[in-house]
């Protein structure tokens, strides 16, 4: 079969449901295509613990913050008036910048009538790039103490998607449903939501479904540890007409392997088929939803 290049994201409302497990095993299953895995859970990146990529490049990522040239500044206060985040404050003969509050909107620089605001930089983390066998791995690591993950997530995606785009790009998204997740799954072709059949899993799944629906991205669900908990997730998916793409039972062997950083497909080769099927289902769904839109 001929496939066009696709980007999929693995997400989940609740943390610890198995996003990274799915992302890494899927990346290692696909053959005959180029694959890139981008770990966008920059607060707690884990995919590299399972793929052990040989890192070839590491780049610092920084964002704009203003620096005020006090020789030129007339203390008109326009920048402070504009800034919605209290990140630049004018007092009598001084202008104070609070980097941790700045959202890098460049508004202050644009509004300054005497061009007294110059570019300064704040380091927010790094992007690492390397290979695990044939799989290209890219991951971001947020600097400790740094609050804003989205610009770093953007940098990870840019590194993986701006040039030399692979046939298959897999994004391991952070947990939750707020801004870092949105940044990670924005503009992908398909989202896989990983959940577990518990009240917490279901509650957070509903939030995640709400999120992908707002973004209008086709999606499907993987139920991890499917042999525990209760049946509510299945009822919900049935009612909402959401496809369940794969079920992964709760097996001691898988859990023990996970604990020490082993991939499921290496412990249980029969899972290669399952992940291959998953990939086929994703391709089919993307193809059919493209038809619907066209």
């Amino acid at each position: 079969m001929e496939f066009k290049k696709i980007i999929i994201a693995i997400a989940s409302g609740k943390g610890g449901t198995g996003k990274t497990t799915v992302a890494t095993n899927l990346a290692k299953t696909v053959t005959g295509q180029t694959v890139t895995l981008m770990d966008c859970d920059v607060e707690e990146p884990n995919a590299h613990l399972f793929l052990n990529p040989e890192i070839r490049e590491e780049e610092p990522v920084d964002i704009f913050i203003p620096r005020v040239d006090l020789d030129r500044c007339t203390h008109c206060g326009k920048c402070s008036e504009l800034c919605q985040f209290g990140a630049i404050v004018t007092i009598k003969d001084k202008v104070l910048v609070f980097p941790e509050l700045c959202h890098s909107c460049l508004g202050c620089k644009r509004i300054c009538p005497v061009e007294a605001i110059e570019d300064d930089k704040k380091a927010i983390g790094t992007v690492s790039m390397g290979f695990s066998e044939s799989v290209r791995c890219i991951y971001g690591t947020l600097k400790i103490g740094e609050a804003m993950a989205p610009p770093l997530i953007q940098a990870v995606k840019k590194a993986g998607l701006s040039k030399k785009v692979s046939d298959l790009s897999i994004i391991d998204a952070p947990p939750g449903t707020s801004c870092p997740v949105i940044e990670a799954i924005k503009n992908v072709d398909f989202v896989v939501l990983v959940t577990e059949p518990t009240p917490f899993g279901l509650h957070d799944l509903k939030l995640a479904v709400g999120m992908v629906r707002i973004l209008e991205i086709p999606f499907g669900i993987i139920v991890n540890r499917s042999t525990t908990g209760d049946r509510q997730v299945w009822h919900y998916c049935h009612k909402e007409n959401i496809p369940i793409l794969l079920e992964i039972p709760d097996e001691r062997e898988i859990a023990e392997g996970y604990a020490i950083g082993k991939l499921m497909i290496d412990l249980k080769p029969e899972y290669k088929n399952k992940f291959q099927n998953l990939m086929n289902k994703i391709h089919q769904t993307i193809a059919s939803s493209a038809k619907v839109i066209a």
């Binding site: 610890g16 859970d41 607060e43 947020l142 740094e146 804003m148 993950a149 870092p180």
Partner: peptide, 10 residues
């Protein structure tokens, strides 16, 4: 609290 080390955790 929440997972991670970013904005809501801080």
């Amino acid at each position: 609290g929440s997972p991670g080390i970013g904005c809501p955790v801080i």
